[in-house]
Design a protein around this nucleic acid. Structure first.
Lengths: 115, 115
DNA sequence: AAATTATGCAACTAAATAATTGCATTTATA
DNA sequence: TATAAATGCAATTATTTAGTTGCATAATTT
């Protein structure tokens, strides 16, 4: 059986995508307004092709989308996709809020003892 | 000059740490209660040594801490460190909340036009 | 139409990564 | 005290990654 279109050499996900510092910088850069690969590359110390590869990876996991405009291609952040990281954080948020409440209680106890 | 103790082959950070799915699973596993490497390894399909390496990486970027108890070492999540990811998300949170408000306005406009 | 610009894709390379096996050390138990 | 258990560390390996250079293609501009 032939490998289908979904077959990829590497498994990309959003966590893998944001692991690279350059990609995080690109994400932050295009967060507010869409930009072309050339314009993005000007902000970094690498070649346009390297940036292009990063954009490809970001596109693969749907963190960015393209918008063709003549021969220029504008890449823009799909900010909604970023919420997935937020969702993953939720499980820990419960814990760290709990920890905070526990600390709160300790502080209250100390306070009451002082009275 | 001799390389000092801080010299590392690789630059680890929290984003790199959570990029690996096994490490994310470990993080989730020990989030609620500290566990030993052996106990953690039982949950995965790899060797204890591999888990140990993941724990080492997580320790390096201060996502987990150790607590020795006889010959056992309990690894526990430093849930506060997870907040760093949350902090990074803040810059995008502003945007996605904004987008939501914009949508909200559109919906309100539609609603008003219907009246 | 010819030259220029914007971009993607392929081949290649160096470095990093995740995992394995084997061994050493420390602590507990029989 | 001898054995077993819990763990870390070193060497090795296969795979992935990020980057480079070079080339092809499509859309502009001169």
């Amino acid at each position: 059986m032939q490998p289908n279109a979904c077959t990829m050499k590497t498994r990309r996900d959003i966590f893998q995508a944001i692991a690279d510092p350059t990609r995080r910088a690109i994400i932050a850069l295009i967060a507010l307004q869409a930009m072309t690969p050339n314009a993005i590359a000007e902000h970094f110390d690498t070649t346009r092709q390297a940036v292009s590869k990063h954009l490809q990876i970001l596109t693969e996991c749907e963190l960015v989308t393209q918008k063709q405009q003549g021969r220029e291609i504008y890449y823009q952040l799909e900010v909604n996709k970023m919420k997935e990281i937020d969702k993953w954080l939720n499980q820990f948020r419960k814990i760290w809020e709990n920890r905070f409440n526990q600390l709160d209680e300790v502080l209250l106890t100390i306070k009451n003892k002082k009275k």
